[in-house]
Structure formats: C-alpha cells, structure tokens
Design a protein around this nucleic acid. Structure first.
Lengths: 229, 229
DNA sequence: AAAATTCATAAAAAGTTCTTGACAAGAACA
DNA sequence: TGTTCTTGTCAAGAACTTTTTATGAATTTT
C-alpha cells in the first residue's frame, strides 16, 4: 500500500519541492501551509507520517505536534532551520520521532523517513494487515490482489480499493459522497457517478462467485457490501 | 433536499451569472452585493454554502468570513482576483474552506462546491446509531435495512425512514404534519395524504409479522407505532 | 339519519435515481 | 513512440420511488 506523507511548511517552495521529490519516490504527498491547515489535513487525509516545520505563522510546529499527539501516534519528523533555537528534549517530550536541520540533503531525509516508518511499523504492524475474506473471495491491499475461488483476478487499483473498503465495512451503507471521501480522498474533485461505474465494473468481475455476499445498491442512498450471515 | 447557496460579490454581473448557472445545476441561489447585505442574507436565508468575493465595498470578504464564523460553521469558499494580495494562511485562519481565483472555470467551481459540501457532510454525518428492535422486527438506518423474522426485506428509503422514526418513538402519536416535519424535512411542501400512502405500504409489508406491535391509526390525530408491553 | 370529516386504497402521473455502453483523457508500459 | 490499461465523463433509457388524485368506506358530529 502506498504510504501517505503530510508536509506542513509555510514556505510553498519547500512544500512543492518535497511533494515532487517524494511523489517520485512513490509516496502520496499532501501539503499544508500552516498549523491550522495542517491539523485539518491530518484529520481528513490520515497520513502515515508527518513532516513538520517548526517555524510557522499563527500556530507553530510545536503546537501542531502536540495536537497531533492528542489524537494519533503516527510518526512525526520535525524540520528546523539551522541556528534556530531548538530544544531536542522538548521535541521528544512532545512526541516527535526524529529531526532534520534545514538545509537538508533529500537523500538523508528520505533515509530518515524510511527508518522512522520501519520502526513504527515494526512496533505496530507485526500483525500484518489481514486480508478481507468471505466465501470464495479474498481481498488484500497488501498484495493488491483479489482472489476469487482461490484464483487471482486482475483488478485495477481503484476498483480494488473500493471493494476493499466496502468489504471491510460490510453491511453498512455508504453514500457516493462518503465513498469518494474515503476511497478517492477528501480533496477529490469529480462526479459522483464515478462510483457507479466502478461498482458496475466490480460487479462484472464478482458475478456468480458466491450467493453469500454481493455489492448491493441501496436505492436513494448508496452502496454496500452485503453479506448473509 | 435542495442545497442553498449564498453568493456575495459587488459585481452584479458575476452575481447574476453565478445565480443563473447554479440554479441550472439545481441549487437555490441568493445573492448579495456587499458585506453588510451579505451578513443579513446569511442570517435570514441560512444557506448551506457561501461564495465570498474578497474585494468588496463597505465590508470586505475577510471581515464577513470572520463574522460568519462567529455564528456558524457552514462552508465558505473565497473568490479572489488574479494577482490580488491574497494570504492563504490568513484565509484558513478565518475558517474559509476553499479558494478559487478569478477568472475561474465554472466547472471547476462547481466541482469545488461539491467537494466542500461532501467533506462537510461526511464530517457531520458519522453518527453510528443502533438499530431499533422489537419482536421479529429490526430497523437499521446504518444498513438501510428492514429485517422481519430475521430476513431482510426491500424497503424504499422514505418508508424505512418513516418506520424508523415511528418505531424509535414508539407508542407516541404524531400528526401527519409532525411526521412530514421530522421525516420529510421542515421545508417540505406537499399534501399530508402522502403520509397515509406510506403507512399503507408499510402495513402491507408488516402484516402478520407480530402481534406485539403495529402501525396504528389514531383517529382524528395521526399515527403511532404501537407496542404491547 | 344526514352531513361532515377523516381514512384506506388503488391507480395514474410525476419525479428521481441507477445502469449501462460508448468514449476520451491520462498513465503505464513496452 | 505507439499501444494498452485505467480512470473518469456523459447521456439515454430503464428501473424504481414518491406524490397526487379519485373514490369509497369508516367514523364522528349535528
């Protein structure tokens, strides 16, 4: 699964540069320009790691780090300018996982990110994310794979993600808007008919595999992965 | 339910153009020409989203946005002219939800409006509630499902919502007008016979399922979901 | 017991929401 | 570079829901 980074820095150039660089390294990257926006983005985007500049207008990196820690244990790497008053102890107290000093070498930052993620995942993820299973179906985001009757089937990423989300929240209805939010991302701009089309394509693939579950339309509401218990 | 937009811009042509365009997209649209009028309109009209030009006589967009935030959390999208001094951070501080730069593409604005509304609603709507249960019946809005004798029955949204409302307020009588208010929405315009028809259709489905409860008519008053205790 | 009001029901009309196929833009790949 | 695959858009028509209307039955009032 793609790792999501959130970059919070008031310097738009740095934001853009980091975004470009890490997208090229196969991360998903969102940026925010200040602490307020950063917190919003953290809640909505649910990143796997946050890169946080300390000096920012209105709400600084310390403050944001503290607020993030109140709601999550996701790794945070602080960015600090050379010569900036910087209390490592204080940072650790606030729950930051690592630090890097501006101007930094991108390769070094990249290495630190990997290291922090590795540590974090070793801690939390020794129970490798289970695949979602029902009769004759198995959906794994980890392998990006859909198995029907034990046989792997080619499925495009978006379809798989949609199916995974619905199946792992089975029997619950989601509106198209909720699905766009959860699967496509909070900042997706586009038509909600898009969901229909993906559901249709999934149905073609899932047809006749089992009568214990199905992708159901809930008229006037949305869709759900329905199971018979 | 129809979504209400409020457009605040000193340029009457832009107001008219936006009104025309979004009415065609099935929004309700009110316009206001300056900040003072805009605040008035916001209070009276109670829009679901505000489109706010920054440069305006009397009271500018910043100021209006701040004042709206004091009394409401409804989404605000700021409109800014190209090249206009524009502080994104300040905008976010003030609580704006998105921005668009003049001259803008109507399709993009439309997409942004949808996205902002989607986010706003996704946030406010995640109230996981329990299903309502009586003998042989179970009604869940989360699954959008009616189970009779443990078996799921197809029920259209309005019927389900009506049944859910009555059952979760069992033994209490509601007039047709109250039901229209609670289930259809306060701004519903239409005949109260509508309720009768829905009750009738529900009765067809619920017939003979249990003698511990029923949809009762209270003559001269309205309906209730009646239970024997 | 007649008149007036209120309900139940069926069926038509109006309105909304889905499905689907065709197509185009963009990404990934060779 | 062209080719294939994925993703998203659109629009027509199908499927379905909701509302209105009409009529007769039930209940209350006078």
């Amino acid at each position: 699964m793609e790792t999501k980074l959130l970059v919070v820095d008031d310097d738009v150039n740095i934001c853009d540069m980091l975004k470009l660089y890490f997208e090229n390294e196969n991360y998903k990257v969102k940026t925010a320009c200040d602490g307020v926006e950063g917190l919003k983005a953290f809640k909505l985007y649910e990143p796997d790691l946050v890169l946080l500049d300390i000096m920012m207008p209105k709400k600084d990196g310390w403050q944001l780090c503290r607020e993030i820690r109140e709601i999550s244990s996701k790794p945070v790497i602080m960015i600090t300018a050379k010569g900036e008053v910087f209390d490592k102890v204080l940072g650790l107290e606030l729950g930051a996982d690592d630090f890097i000093v501006k101007p930094f070498d991108m390769k070094e930052l990249s290495a630190r990110i990997k290291a922090v993620l590795r540590r974090y995942n070793a801690h939390t993820n020794n129970n490798d994310e289970e695949a979602v299973r029902f009769e004759n179906i198995e959906i794994s985001l980890q392998r990006y794979e859909l198995k029907l009757n034990g046989k792997a089937i080619d499925v495009p990423p978006k379809e798989l993600e949609l199916l995974y989300f619905l199946a792992s929240n089975c029997n619950r209805v989601f509106t198209r808007d909720q699905l766009l939010d959860k699967v496509w991302g909070f900042d997706y701009l586009g038509d909600s008919r898009t969901v229909d089309v993906h559901v249709k394509r999934l149905r073609e693939k899932l047809e006749g595999v089992s009568d214990k579950w199905s992708l159901k339309t809930v008229w006037g509401v949305g869709y759900k992965f329905d199971t018979v218990i």
